[in-house]
Design a protein around this nucleic acid. Sequence first.
DNA 1: AGTGGTAGTTCTATTTTAGATACTTAGAAT
DNA 2: ATTCTAAGTATCTAAAATAGAACTACCACT
Lengths: 125, 125
Amino acid sequence: MSENKFTDENVIARCVPMSKLQSVIGGKWKILILWYVAFYKVQRFGELMRRLDGVTQSTLTKQLRELENDGFLHREIYKEIPPKVEYSLTEFGESFIPVLQTMMTWSEKYLCPDYVNPYKEIMNE
Amino acid sequence: MSENKFTDENVIARCVPMSKLQSVIGGKWKILILWYVAFYKVQRFGELMRRLDGVTQSTLTKQLRELENDGFLHREIYKEIPPKVEYSLTEFGESFIPVLQTMMTWSEKYLCPDYVNPYKEIMNE
DNA sequence: AGTGGTAGTTCTATTTTAGATACTTAGAAT
DNA sequence: ATTCTAAGTATCTAAAATAGAACTACCACT
């Protein structure tokens, strides 16, 4: 982009979706949760809890509820004892996968350049 | 992705860059600031202040400093009176533009489906 | 009868983030 | 002489987000 074609109006216009995005994925654990659910397909509360290092139960519950309310996650409750709940991406949530991929690819390259991921090939299939 | 090739190890591995990303762009105004700076190329403090509806001076300063410390922004101080400071993307910051674009495109389509942006064509040039 | 397991809720504490207000600099305009 | 300008800083308070600990429910197992 060598010349700037972005006028005030269109940049302000674009501010709206960007703000919404921020409000929707801004939570401390949200993109991480989405990442896990997206690539495990189905996830249970306890599994997520163990993977998200340092999250508390109450916080995780809140973040999951918000992701559910925002349409990313489906929460399937099995009427069993002990309780069983499975989280999965909704169709809307799945539409977000390419964004997650883009974020991931960038982060690996630019935030963790020295970090060697032994499973690199999996992403590009 | 019909079968799950994501083992524990590689998902946990990928968690690291994703966490870093969150910590770096998690601030309430950051992706919005990056968005503005990316597509105006150069931005002044007051301009950003006016565009980010509701941000306060101290908060904006803090977010800009963090983006500077994290390597996204360059802060050029002109020794003039009244003071003049210009923010621009570093090379590192520019590498993030495709991620912003992806976010933007998704947000427009899925978060603001009824929102008609009159300058749509500009993005795809 | 007591323990373990899952997915919570509730309450309080702490941390993080944001907001409000006052102050600074030094030249230019009124 | 006072006011205005831009981009802050400093300090304090308020609000929001997150953490931490305790408690619940229900059934199975020992």
